[in-house]
Amino acid sequence: MDILQYSIRKLIAGIPLILGVTLVSFLLIVYFGPDQTYSLLGKNPTAAEIAELRSQLGYDQPFVTRYLQYLREIVTLDFGSSQANDEKVSSILARTIPVSLALSLPGFVLGNLLGVALALVAAYNRGRWLDKFIMGFAAVGMSISFLIVIIGFQILLSSSDGLDLFPVRGWDTSTPLQYLRYVTVPTLATVFVALGYNTRFYRAVIVEEMTRDHVRTARAFGIPQSQLFYKNILKNSMIPIVTRVVFSIPLIVISGSLLLESYFGIPGIGYVTYDAIVTGDQPVLKAVVALTAVLFVVAQLLTDICYRIVDPRVSLK
């Protein structure tokens, strides 16, 4: 009950954030976004046709009206239809979000698990060559652009010039085997790029824990290194680790990975969002922004609750 009360209070406290995000984004979309009129017009438009289309797209209404309409849409979860191809926004989201999740989750999970594992190994062997090697590898991973990795992997693994093991592009989740075929190369690319950052961060956290007084005491007591690591260090490091993981979830869920999706032909939310931004398809953008804001607030709430569970010293005030 305590937690429930706390959650509700936190969610309500998150409302100003949601309002802020939607207001700022809406401002950006309306005043600084592309005018979609001209990409929808045919050849030889007359001035009358242009005005008509603009009115159809809702550009001639005052800002406040449109913003209030936006808020109403958020509450009722009905964002209308995309202006580019008339599909209902809710159906676009329902269709693309699961795909983006299916695409990013393996890489996300693997990247973090491997990151923690490598960080443990590195911290365990702190100062020795294994540590330096892993950190060097991490530094390399951090220094290569994601774009380069994607292009490189596609050539190496998928194209007929390279190993030709996987499909170049496409998406199919009808059977687990098919899913594996299509998700492998994107996942490898994601892990390659994320591993560097993750390993470094987790290693820093673990090393921080290692130098704490209670660990030094335990070591003085003669507790073996491995038990030390697992029981004392890893558990306590979970807080910052979990914080980081949970905080990156909204980004993965909603923004998707634009580059992965466009290069591998995966119909996910990232590509749809980018298209909407660039053409000024407002209904889609509004929905995505609102969803991101809500998820962000929820993520914050979750981390706070996690803190509470893990560290009883943190109060729920």
Binding site: I151, Q154, I155, S158, S159, S160, D161, D164, P167, V168, R169, G170, S262, Y263, F264, G265
Partner: peptide, 13 residues
């Protein structure tokens, strides 16, 4: 498929 390179890779497969 917008990207010519991806399209070509897919075609030659």
């Amino acid at each position: 498929v917008k990207e010519g390179s991806a399209r070509w890779s897919s075609f030659t497969k």
